[in-house]
């Protein structure tokens, strides 16, 4: 298992490098730049600025400078806001974004798994139909619409939770944004879990387990859940990265202090430094998540370890 983990970590390195390269060039080859303001800058100032950020060097040289800094843990400066940098942005906003996404992730995954299981065990009975309905709502309503509906109903009409904003960080402010983020995720997880659980419950080995008289609870807990999780786990990695990116938009809608606000402003201003740095940060997170998923996979399905 340890050897397998090490192999997987090593094989992630070239993938990370390739991904960084692609991000870098796509962003830099796009038209427009950080200093195309409404008011043209004097040529001398512009030249100074470009020299300061190495934008006067050939692109390939810039690329190596960027990689060099990255290897030293420097994700680069902002090119629009003096003295601001990606590291600073991460320090200010990322803990919040991560908290929001992880809270939604944990709740949604748990709810999704349990709901999927209940639906599978009660296949084609009322709990199953209720789930189908709730899942459908989560999947078909886009998050901005869901956000608006929840804000109106629970924020404005019922006044149970604040409709937006962030005052001294009470958890009440997180309820609606977490719901908006978590719902579609929980919906997908429960659908996956229901399907794979139904499949597993029909397998010969579950029949064997039942034939041993060990009881419904052990049959489910020991024999069915672990193999049923396999297809679900492969969705968790991508699922969390959707939540992390989805969180950016939800923060904006609810006026929350994550990196969403900075990222969206930076993208509009073509602030290469911030956009590239954030993108690469996300990429690393996604790679790490995939790695974790693969390791969990190897634990769930012993056959994987020996390949």
């Amino acid at each position: 298992m340890l050897g397998y983990a090490l192999r997987r970590v090593l094989s992630a390195i070239p993938i990370a490098l390739i991904a960084v390269t692609i991000c870098f060039f796509i962003l830099r080859l796009a038209p427009g730049g950080p200093f195309d303001g409404e008011r043209a800058l004097p040529p001398l100032v512009l030249a100074n600025l470009r020299a300061h950020y190495n934008l006067d060097q050939p692109l390939v040289v810039q690329y190596f400078i960027y990689i060099w800094r990255l290897l030293h843990g420097d994700l680069g400066p902002s090119m629009v806001i003096e003295g601001f940098s990606v590291s600073r942005l991460i320090a200010i906003g990322f803990p919040f974004t991560l908290t929001l996404a992880l809270t939604a992730f944990v709740i949604a995954t748990f709810v999704g798994l349990v709901a999927g299981m209940i639906a599978a065990v009660n296949q084609n009975k009322w709990p199953d139909y209720v789930l189908v309905l709730v899942v459908m709502i989560g999947v078909i309503i886009p998050n901005f619409l869901m956000a608006a509906l929840l804000q109106l109903w629970f924020g404005v009409y019922l006044r149970w939770f604040p409709a937006g904003g962030w005052v001294n960080g009470s958890w009440m402010h997180l309820v609606l944004p977490v719901t908006v983020l978590a719902w579609p995720h929980a919906a997908r997880i429960s659908r996956l879990m229901r399907g794979s659980m139904i499949e597993v419950l029909g397998t010969n080995y579950v029949r064997t387990a039942r034939s041993k008289g060990i009881g419904q609870r052990l049959v489910l807990a020991r024999h069915a859940i672990k193999p049923a999780l396999i297809p679900v786990v492969s969705y968790l990695g991508p699922g969390l990265s959707y939540l992390l990116t989805g969180s950016l938009a939800v923060e904006q809608i609810f006026g929350l202090p994550g990196i969403g606000k900075y990222f969206i402003t930076a993208a509009l201003n073509r602030d290469y430094g911030i956009v590239l740095g954030t993108t690469i940060l996300y990429m690393f997170i996604i790679l790490a998540l995939n790695l974790i998923v693969d390791l969990v996979y190897a634990w769930l399905d012993p056959k994987v370890r020996y390949r």
């Binding site: 064997t208 024999h223 672990k226």
Partner: peptide, 8 residues
């Protein structure tokens, strides 16, 4: 071949 649980 399929009557034993592959994950246990």
């Amino acid at each position: 071949m399929t009557s034993l649980n592959p994950s246990l």
